[in-house]
């Protein structure tokens, strides 16, 4: 194994660790909303610092690798992709915190019927599945798996599109819960953003493995 191989292996390991942590953060965010568990919110907040530290650590490793080993071709694409993926992961982590914080701002738990109507669980499960797909794809260097997120993202987009009108209905029916419903809409928006970030990671993976640029193209 060359020095560069060893550096690249370490970067990959760090990105995989960050992926695992971010995925757990997002999953805990779902549980926090469903169970109204404020302790979980504290835990997510505390872990956010670890996510940020991991991003900085990956940035430093990448800076060193570029300066010391001047990678080219597939190695360079891997380093570039990892740099962007870690930034995407950090933003997914931010969204997980944003979702969990919701329960600090509302007085009571949302009903299962309301969550069901807006398809909260379905959207959340899809977002988590998208992350699992891209994370596994990164680990196995499997672009077929990475491409699966493009279809799943459409489900998220559709739920997000319908969420505004459903929220209006909620507010009209129960105006005194307007605060709760607006926060719920905000969660839906954050999940949609998570889907976009997962899609970005898939695009970076395809760039790294196949040297194809999918960014800003409608047909993937």
């Amino acid at each position: 194994m060359t020095h560069l191989d060893s550096e690249l292996k370490q970067i990959k390991q760090q990105v995989i660790e960050m992926m695992t942590l971010v995925r757990n953060q997002l999953a805990k965010g779902k549980n926090a909303v469903l169970t109204f568990d404020k302790d979980l919110v504290h835990e997510i907040n505390a872990n956010e610092k670890r996510v940020n530290a991991m991003e900085l650590s990956i940035d430093r490793a990448i800076e060193n690798t570029l300066a010391l080993y001047t990678p080219v071709a597939v190695d360079l694409r891997f380093v570039m992709a990892s740099f962007k993926i870690s930034a995407d992961l950090e933003r997914i982590g931010d969204n997980a915190v944003g979702i969990a914080k919701y329960i600090n701002h509302v007085n009571e738990q949302l009903t299962a019927a309301d969550l069901d109507k807006i398809k909260f669980v379905e959207m959340y499960e899809n977002a988590l599945l998208m992350l699992e797909n891209v994370f596994e794809a990164f680990e196995k260097e499997d672009t077929k798996l990475a491409r699966e997120v493009f279809v799943k993202d459409k489900v998220l987009n559709k739920i997000n599109l319908n969420a505004a009108s459903i929220t209006i209905q909620f507010i009209q029916q129960t105006p005194d819960k307007i605060n709760n419903y607006l926060y719920l809409l905000s969660i839906i928006r954050k999940l949609e953003r998570v889907g976009d970030l997962a899609k970005n990671i898939a695009e970076e993976l395809i760039f790294y493995i196949e040297a194809k640029v999918l960014k800003h193209h409608k047909k993937k």
Binding site: T2, D5, V72, A73, V74, D75, L76, R77, A211
Partner: peptide
């Protein structure tokens, strides 16, 4: 050549493998 070589031999050579 240095970002996306077509031949595996080229890639192996320029990446030091």
């Amino acid at each position: 050549i240095f970002t996306n070589p077509k031949q595996e031999k080229t890639q192996n050579y320029i990446t030091g493998r």
